[in-house]
């Protein structure tokens, strides 16, 4: 069943923009949804599987964006080299953050990771190497083996492949020994220790799996925008990721994608201006966590149950 179903879903997503009329705005929306969903998948692993809330994930996103911006404009790197650099940078930064926060739990962990993001923003806005407050412009077009993506329509297959890669990785992670260990550490730390699992080691490993996924989204974002500045560290991205992860439900493979799609569709097609959109996004996050602990999927399940009981 899985073997037939998943490729069908993947192909349906690939064909999505064409099925929806194939306009430029539709392709742009799909590319952005794919990028931001990939960004959210990295965080999903930490929130849903490890049970911690990392607020440093915008830093990994920025790692990818800046590594790509700098290496393509100053060193002439192509997409493959810049992707490798993105992964390496994210791993290095994740190792440092992971080691520093290794023994911190719950909100102290979140507090420190939040501080990492704020500090990263002040550094990005002030350090000349990272372009300072002007940022880095002139990022070349995405071109691979003689083929160039000049528009979002041409970039869509790349964004789709990135998204599929992220989903595949998260799925593989959940089936792997590491994924099982992470869940054990999350749900029952005592049992984990008794079964010979090293919780600190597991945490660090999950962090190292998660960071490159979010960073890879930053890699494509740099090509899509052609310009990167300290804005990539704004709270918007953090709130977007968190909302995308909790909106639909935890530990459901397509939940971050559907969550991101719902949020971006509101912002692209039902926008009330930036400020009101902030209020809407913050409000959705508050409502889901305060009143819908199971997310939209939980709501649908209890709705179904009630309908069955009624009938």
């Amino acid at each position: 069943m899985r073997i037939v179903l998943w490729p069908a879903v993947a192909l349906a997503i690939l064909a999505g923009p064409w099925l929806l009329g194939g306009g430029g705005a539709v392709f742009s929306a799909f590319v952005l949804i794919a990028i931001f969903a990939t960004m959210a998948y990295g965080l999903d692993v930490i929130v849903s599987d490890l049970g911690e809330v990392s607020l440093a994930h915008p830093v990994f996103f920025a790692c990818g964006a800046y590594a790509t911006a700098i290496s393509t404009t100053r060193l002439g790197f192509g997409p493959v080299e810049s992707f490798l650099l993105t992964v390496l940078t994210a791993l290095a930064v994740a190792a440092v953050i992971g080691l520093v926060t290794l023994r911190l739990r719950e909100f102290v962990f979140s507090l420190v990771t939040y501080a990492v993001t704020v500090v990263a923003m002040t550094v990005a806005a002030n350090w000349a190497f990272l372009g300072g407050s002007d940022g880095i412009s002139g990022i070349p077009l995405f071109s691979l083996a003689g083929w160039q993506a000049r528009t979002d329509r041409e970039l869509w297959p790349v964004a789709w492949a990135l998204l599929m890669g992220a989903i595949y990785l998260v799925d593989a992670f959940r089936r792997s020994g590491l994924g099982q260990r992470a869940m054990t550490v999350h749900l029952n730390p005592e049992l984990a220790t008794m079964s010979g699992i090293d919780p600190l080691r597991t945490r660090l490993q999950v962090f190292l799996v998660s960071a490159p996924i979010t960073a890879a989204a930053g890699w494509l974002y740099a090509y899509q925008r052609a310009y990167i500045s300290a804005d990539v560290l704004e709270t918007y991205f953090l709130i977007l990721m968190l909302t995308a992860v909790v909106l639909v439900g935890r530990r459901m493979l397509l939940a971050p994608l559907i969550g991101t799609a719902l949020i971006l569709m509101q912002e692209k097609f039902l926008s009330f201006g930036g400020y009101v959109d902030s209020i809407v996004l913050g409000g959705v996050l508050i409502l889901v966590l305060s009143f819908l602990p199971g997310g939209l999927a939980g709501l649908a399940r209890s709705g179904l149950k009630m309908a069955r009981r009624g009938g």
């Binding site: 049970g51 911690e52 809330v53 607020l55 719950e106 909100f107 979140s110 709270t235 918007y236 953090l238 709130i239 968190l242 909302t243 909790v246 930036g274 400020y275 009101v276 959109d277 902030s278 209020i279 996004l281 913050g282 409000g283 959705v284 996050l285 508050i286 966590l289 305060s290 602990p293």
Partner: peptide, 22 residues
């Protein structure tokens, strides 16, 4: 539930910033 409280307050912060901008 400290973790959820934390995220909800982050959401409030985002809302307040939007409301202040408005």
């Amino acid at each position: 539930d400290l973790v959820s409280i934390m995220i909800v307050t982050l959401g409030f912060g985002h809302m307040l910033e939007g409301a202040a901008g408005l």
